[in-house]
Amino acid sequence: MDFRLTDDQRALQEGVRKLLEGRFGRERLRAAVDGPGVGPEASLDRALWRELGDAGFFALRLPERDGGVGLGLPEAVLAFEEAGRALLPGPLVATHLAAATVPGAATGERVVTRVDGELVEWLDAADHVLGNAAGAVPVRSVDPLTPLHRVPGAAGGDVPEPDAVPAALLTAAEQLGSAGRTTEAAVRYAGEREQFGRPIGSFQAVKHLCARMLVRTETARAAVYGAAVTGEAVEIAGAKLLADDAAVRNARDCLQVHGGMGFTWEADVHLHLKRAWVRAERWPTEREAAELLAAALR
């Protein structure tokens, strides 16, 4: 047993981080948020999408004989964790999962989204929709970089479609990346910002907020990585539950550590919080996950 990342996995993690820093760094993120097309009008950067396709982001788990990278769920989790850190927009999970079934998805030429419960992300930008989005009506999305549609009456399916389980895991990985990123942001700000003549990070009240953030992140990390290795549905539901909690609560605490600045549009922390809220609504929600996990107690 060696649960740690292998050298190859570390290299992949670093590679994706570098790629995203270069292609979707803070300036690009802010340009997207502060540009004209946000909310319902947000437009997907197709050039970036193809670059992700070229880098193998969508074809990561396709066998090499089918033009894929031939890697597994643990590697996909590492890549999606980086996407979560970077707040990379777009229906990443749906397109990744469609790599084997929808032509053009693996290469990033086509954008694929999916109906998840009552919600569909990026419907107008998508070339292909998994599930039935008939009658979808646009929502004024809380997340400026995730346009949403609502499909009335679509929820309530007891049996999730086969892709739902890996989708939940990859969403959990994004949440984990966000939780880690907001922890770092809070720690950095707490070390720089001075009040009463010293860094606010020297005060226990602030210190303990940061420590709690790390505990949530590392617990979620163990859960998400463990679920990636076993691929087991109940363990994945547990990972989603803990990663949702870590992403949402860490973003809240990060906002608190930033004080008044945290309440501004200019600080990135609200983007993490809003995206975390969107991802927490994907299947399984807290309620659904808790029921699945309870039923499995035998």
Partner: peptide, 8 residues
């Protein structure tokens, strides 16, 4: 659900 969360 509390028991479910504790399972996670």
């Amino acid at each position: 659900r509390t028991l479910g969360r504790l399972n996670a």
